[in-house]
Structure formats: structure tokens, C-alpha cells
Design a protein around this nucleic acid. Structure first.
Lengths: 143, 143
DNA sequence: TATTGTTATACTCTATAACTATA
DNA sequence: TATAGTTATAGAGTATAACAATA
């Protein structure tokens, strides 16, 4: 079982490195890409909403948005109903980056699983679901 | 396939959070724990060797070792044959932490897989090996 | 009063570059 | 010359706390 855990941890490293390469190519860091990814799926969002989505303090979002504004991925637009809030919004470049990340994601899934024998893939899926389910239940027990 | 990749990425997050909790309990950060883990498996090491093992610059090792010295996990001992080098060496507290990490690791493997049906576990192993093998070959192609 | 986002401050991890002591 | 490790400097990401503007 330990060997299997080590193999999982090896996969984590390989995945992180691979995804990081894609991001750098797109002019993003991991944290900024996470924000772009969130914006891509949720549309224009308040920084508060982003803070919750990324599980990070509002202060950290300020920094990430500052960086993404400067590099031309997003703008801060006034919130129509709440003058305290801003809506972080894609520029054209940002929207393109969001779509590119989506494509990279699909491509990664394909490159990992596409030519894997059907039964192997099924077995992997089943075990994976079991592990995640077990983890989730442990976690909800802890709180 | 995308759903499966998402599930893998969910597992990555769950694993990171879980391991992070263990480390904090032991008074370590992720990077420092990585160094402790390496020392636990390799014994007293030069900072150069640690830099290569952690895939990080020597400068980063200086910082990590400084922090671990200050918190009482390691000491810098003179290298017997090379007066330029230092041997980063466990204190008693550090050695205990190394063993504790080892126990946490075994415990994690158990909690993940112990009561998983044998066939599910086998299927998971097989798929996992296939994914990692595919990743490794891709990577070696790239260099 | 509560919420949104900011400034102020600090810590961790990392990198590059210049330098010292040794090999 | 080359190597081991340091100082100097910088940048990214994160956190807490105090604060301004608005709800």
C-alpha cells in the first residue's frame, strides 16, 4: 500500500510540473491561473467571491488581481448594485487565456487516458472514486 | 476522461491538505518537512546533496536549514574530509520528527487503501502505474 | 453594525548574482 | 579553476490587523 501511495505522490509531482509548464507558456503563475480558471467558469466575480472560491483571504485576491490587471488579463469594473464591490472581469486576452486553459485541460485528460485499455481505465476510475470518497468522509468527520 | 482528471485533481488537493495538517502538527512546513524526509532516508547530507534531492538552489537550502536549526531539528556539522562543506545532521528532535513522518506516511497509506476491496485496489494500482508510465515517457521525450 | 476591499506589515519559499573559503 | 555555502537582493504568495467606504 505504501508503494501505491508513493506512486500517487509521484503522479502529483508529474502533474504539477506538467500543468505549470502550460501556465508559464500562457504568462500565468499557478495562483493567477487558478483565478483565471475560476473566472472562466463563473464569469465576472467580486473579489469576495473569488476569495471563497480559491480558499484564500481577500487580501491575497487583491494581490492576484493587481498582477492580472497589470499583465492585461482582467479589469476591475464597478459592481452595478453595490458600490463597495468590484467585478473582476476578463479582458479579451483574459478570456482567451481562460479558453486556452480549458483546452489544455482537455488535452491533458486525453494524453493521460486516451490510449489506455478500457478495462484499465475503468479499474483506475473505480479505485480513484473509492479513495476520494473515503477522503471526503474522513474530512467531514473532522469538522 | 475529463471527469476522471478532475477527480485526480480533487485527490491532489485532499492529499495536500491532509499531509499539511500532519506537518503543522509536527512544527514543520511543507518544504522543511521535505528536507527532513530526505535526511531521514539519506542520513547526514551536504547542503549541495540536499539541493539536488529537493530540486532547489543551494540558496534555498541555506534558508531551510537556518529555519530547521533555529527550531531545533538539525545541526550543521563539519564535513570530515571537506572543510568547505557542512553535514546537515538530525538532532534527537529531528530524528524523532523523521520517524513520525514515516509513521504518518504508513498511516496515510493504510487509511486510504486498507479497507478497499482487493479487486478495486488492484485496478487502481494498474491504472495508476499506466498513467505514471505514460507521463514518464512523455517527459523523457521532451528533454 | 456588517461587509468589501484596501493599506501596512510580516513570514515562507524561491531565484539570480556576487563573494569567501576551500579544493 | 571549480565547488560549497554564504550574503545581498528581489519577487510571488500568503496571513493578520487596522481602516475607509458603503450597505
Amino acid at each position: 500500500m505504501e508503494r501505491t501511495l508513493d506512486r500517487v505522490l509521484e503522479l502529483v509531482v508529474l502533474l504539477n510540473d506538467d500543468m505549470e509548464r502550460d501556465l508559464v507558456r500562457r504568462g500565468l503563475t499557478g495562483s493567477r491561473a487558478h483565478l483565471v480558471w475560476e473566472l472562466h467558469h463563473s464569469g465576472p466575480s467580486t473579489q469576495q467571491a473569488l476569495a471563497e472560491a480559491l480558499s484564500v483571504t481577500p487580501r491575497a485576491i487583491t494581490g492576484l488581481v493587481d498582477a492580472l490587471v497589470e499583465s492585461g488579463f482582467v479589469t476591475r469594473e464597478p459592481h452595478p448594485d453595490d458600490r463597495r464591490a468590484t467585478l473582476v472581469t476578463f479582458t479579451r486576452q483574459g478570456a482567451q487565456a481562460g479558453k486556452a486553459l480549458e483546452r489544455d485541460h482537455v488535452e491533458l485528460a486525453r494524453s493521460l487516458f486516451a490510449d489506455m485499455p478500457e478495462t484499465t481505465f475503468r479499474g483506475f476510475q473505480r479505485g480513484l472514486d473509492a479513495v476520494v470518497a473515503r477522503f471526503r468522509s474522513q474530512r467531514s468527520t473532522m469538522r
